[in-house]
Design a binder for these strands. Structure first.
Lengths: 161, 161
DNA sequence: TGCGTCGCGCAAGATTATTGCGCACATCCG
DNA sequence: CGGATGTGCGCAATAATCTTGCGCGACGCA
């Protein structure tokens, strides 16, 4: 996992693509002061190296009827590999869980949950989460407002080769 | 904010684009059993309506030297609009904060922070967050492992017109 | 100075985007 | 029941873009 070296141009490309992922290669080239050919070759290199893991359309949750989001902190009863493995597998199978992180602190996991409404959340909580073995404690907080959703890493602060 | 009606084809398009945002219109059309023309027209409609808010390249944080992530829960001293307004503005100005949500529960805000290392985080915490007025309490948890990062809404479970 | 490497720009063919147009089907009203 | 209307599809043609091979110049090094 050494990671490939990234120069200033690479970082500028990434910075642009984080915000406008469907921009044409021609315009991306113009933004970073390059002709289309080397720009495309750099892009393919970044994709092949996994620096760019993929591209995603950002869908408005409200528009598709998913109007409620919550963050659920979960504590497991035990921390042996079997318990963890089982929990992780279930989390990956649950569609409502968009993100899941293992954290330091008194709670083991943080789940970002997206659902249609309170009823939907209730079913998720009762039928899935609390039904899962190994779950000792659960603490739910609902999203009142999305204050910031950059969807972009702070590349500006990086020096780059 | 009624939102435009979405049929089964629209949802399938969104489902594909959430995972492969840079797919060509021709291939997207093939995936949803449509010819390129109506597929593009649907896409433009979805973009214009804001159902698709944008497109983003998913950059690997490790690859760009941002190897440490944290979730910081913040409680404000007061909840008057002036205190909130000030805090929100600062959050939006801080590059390290990728996401920020106002939550129910005993902590008012959840910040998703991406930094290079502990030193970087320390500077963020001491120089920025704890220096901000109106901040009563702060609780940081570091990301040990990203268990799941779908980056996609669960559209499969939606019926759609 | 001479050699090798690296990355750029140019150019041409293949692919894709984009628009106008006509047609089929469903709905609604007379 | 018949005709009008609207909606959305596919086709076709042009414009734009992608994609690859190639030659050139800059740089590092012995």
């Amino acid at each position: 996992m050494a990671g490939i070296p990234l120069d200033r141009t690479d970082l500028r490309m990434l910075d642009v693509l984080q915000r406008e992922g469907r921009i044409t290669n021609a315009e991306l080239a113009a933004r970073v002061n390059l002709s289309p050919s080397p720009c495309l070759r750099r892009l393919q290199r970044l994709e092949a190296a996994g620096v760019i893991a993929g591209y995603a359309a950002q869908v408005d949750p409200q528009a598709v009827g998913l109007g409620l989001q919550a963050f659920v902190r979960v504590q497991l009863t035990q921390h042996d590999s079997a318990t963890i493995e089982t929990f992780v597998q279930r989390v990956n199978a649950w569609d409502e869980v968009v993100d899941c992180y293992a954290l330091t602190g008194d709670m083991d996991y943080l789940l970002h949950v997206v659902v249609a409404d309170l009823d939907h959340f209730s079913r998720f909580l009762l039928d899935k989460l609390l039904n899962a073995s190994g779950v000792a404690d659960v603490n739910s907080s609902f999203v009142l407002r999305t204050v910031k959703h950059a969807g972009a890493l702070p590349l500006a602060q990086l020096a780059g080769a």
